[in-house]
């Protein structure tokens, strides 16, 4: 599935919810399902510091594709991270680098990327792209 196909799939899933609580319950559920990172990978190197909650991101490069694992202390952030991984993980650095993550806006989660949230999610997207740039240069 391409990055945009996954994004469209998520947008369709969210179209089913007509109130904020259903939407957030779904995200919370996604957060609970994200397997996260083992404690030894929650290192200072992997941390993306936000004012509100910490996010850890780990990247693996296998057969020309980039895979992400991540974790957060906050469950809603974890749910959003789950979706980001679903969209970006397993693609080539070039694809990830070029990705326009329009699904975040379409599902009404743009405020979570806003600076005021300071939750590290925007930094997380940036860090994923940085990994893509770095591995893209290596590849």
């Amino acid at each position: 599935m391409t990055i945009n196909e996954t994004q469209d799939e998520i947008i369709e899933e969210f179209a089913l919810f007509d109130d904020w609580a259903d939407k957030y319950e779904y995200i919370i559920d996604l957060g609970k399902k994200l397997k996260g990172l083992p404690e030894e990978q929650k290192t200072e190197d992997n941390i993306i510091k936000g004012c509100q909650s910490r996010v850890w991101l780990n990247a693996r490069f296998e057969n020309g594709e980039l895979f992400f694992d991540a974790d957060s202390e906050a469950i809603i952030v974890k749910g959003l991270v789950n979706m980001l991984i679903r969209v970006l993980s397993g693609h080539t650095p070039n694809e990830i680098n070029a990705a326009d993550l329009y699904f975040i806006d379409k599902i009404g989660m743009t405020s979570h990327l806003a600076q005021t949230r300071s939750n590290g999610l925007a930094s997380m997207v940036k860090q994923m792209k940085n990994y893509a740039i770095a591995y893209g240069l290596k590849a």
Binding site: A21, Y24, Q52, S53, E73, A74, I75, I76, H112, N119
Partner: peptide, 12 residues
């Protein structure tokens, strides 16, 4: 419960 989750869900 992480305080950020409380903040987000109260804001909603």
């Amino acid at each position: 419960i992480h305080h950020q989750d409380i903040g987000v869900l109260l804001d909603n």
